[in-house]
Design a protein around this nucleic acid. Structure first.
Lengths: 245, 245
DNA sequence: TAGTGGTCTAGACCACGCC
DNA sequence: GCGTGGTCTAGACCACTAG
């Protein structure tokens, strides 16, 4: 049992360096969502650490929602599942009172020069070609959400080639399957404005009606920005809940 | 050092029962924000626990933002300070580009029968008398926020007697000082709507302009609901940020 | 029954803040 | 120098899951 050595700055605590090491493995794709990682005892043996130190490292990653523990089974790379997270903001109820996954209709998908705010978020050059996509989300054939989505090249070049019928309402599984890009977390910025002429006609409301605007930047495990998205939805359907301490 | 015994359900882990016990002490007011709690070694001695078990208990309360640890100094009851937390949503910048604490002007303060949604949130009877307060918040003498605030009786009866000039822009310190009520956490619900005639005239905007509506229920350490508040502010000034994983 | 994470013990030594 | 929390060790035993 040749004790492997922790890499990284040895002035850092061992539990941090072990957490970094596991996080990096996941970022590199050596471990994928759903995979089981080595048991605490195995990790302790492998890195020549006390069990408590290993637990501390895993606790960090559980807290970051990168891993999840299942008592009696093992520790697993967590499935990030917030593609349909607009449900955190909007409730789309069907006739039966149940949540509906809005249908998706792609209006445009093409290469365009990235505007400044997008380029900056995605760390690409202003004016460099990027994939732009315009989607409409509908419930009962009624539009509820418009999305503008930007994806950087060459990371997502495969995305332009996919047939439209292969793209369902959930994009992040497509990014993973077709482009090998896993979205691990996101930052969202929220505001509200009057719909205005452009979006009121798309959303079939009055130009003066308020819409919620949600900007989202999605990141990979290694903090590379993968997607910029701006969604506009009817304020009427919007309700957000937050706990503060 | 006669070993005290942990109270509570002895089927629960000891670290949870210790955390409950400390939390209860704070809820009862035996420990107040800013107070230092016993050191880990003292707690371990007092309850006849291993140091690691005590650490685990404290970690829970640190995670709940009830305690905070300061290396080399001790562990303290945290000061909940989110009265001015509208800053998490709205940025009110002065001419110098710095954050401003909006001034506060009380429009009304009186006893009224509680409407249903308020009564439910505060766990009082519908129609029972409660304190209602209407405030306007201003920056550079321009209105930016209107608030409707409800407080339950008899808990807050002293609040009606306070002179208006003693009530500053921050209410929670007043609740503590004058009524002995400490706000420990809150739940917020956010939506947007057109201002409408009533609020557009107060906020000096067009009735069609969008406003953000934030409902907040504030709770004590023992989860008793202390305050119901609805704030309306200019959507233009609003920007909210959230990280999701 | 074997293997996993969850709880708990009983320490040692280090790093920090303060006097 | 002293008391605090932070890191780390080296285990034991319990509770849960699965074959």
């Amino acid at each position: 049992m040749q004790g492997s050595v922790l890499s990284g700055d040895d002035r850092l605590p061992k539990y941090m360096r072990l957490a970094d090491s596991i996080r990096t493995e996941i970022a590199l794709g050596k471990r994928r969502p759903g995979d089981q990682i080595a048991s605490e005892a195995e990790l302790a043996m492998h890195y020549d650490l006390a069990p408590g130190t290993v637990r501390q490292a895993i606790a960090i990653l559980v807290d970051e929602r990168i891993l999840e523990r299942q008592h009696g089974k093992g520790t697993f790379v967590r499935h990030p599942r917030f593609d349909s997270s607009m449900f955190r903001f909007f409730r789309f109820l069907g006739a039966d009172g149940l949540d509906l996954e809005p249908e998706s209709r792609i209006l445009r998908r093409l290469l365009l020069p990235a505007p400044e705010h997008v380029a900056q978020a995605l760390s690409i050059d202003v004016g460099a070609d990027a994939i732009f996509m315009n989607r409409l989300r509908l419930v009962d054939s009624k539009p509820v959400l418009v999305e503008e989505i930007w994806l950087p090249l060459p990371r997502f070049s495969a995305f332009l080639e996919i047939e439209e019928r292969e793209i369902g309402p959930l994009l992040y599984p497509v990014y993973d399957r077709e482009c090998g890009q896993i979205v691990a977390r996101a930052e969202e910025y929220l505001t509200a404005e009057a719909a205005g002429v452009e979006f009121s006609s798309i959303l079939q409301i009055e130009p003066s009606e308020p819409v919620i605007v949600i900007d989202r930047i999605a990141y990979a495990y290694d903090d590379v920005a993968l997607e910029w998205r701006r969604s506009r939805g009817l304020a009427k359907e919007f309700n957000y809940h937050a706990s503060i301490r």
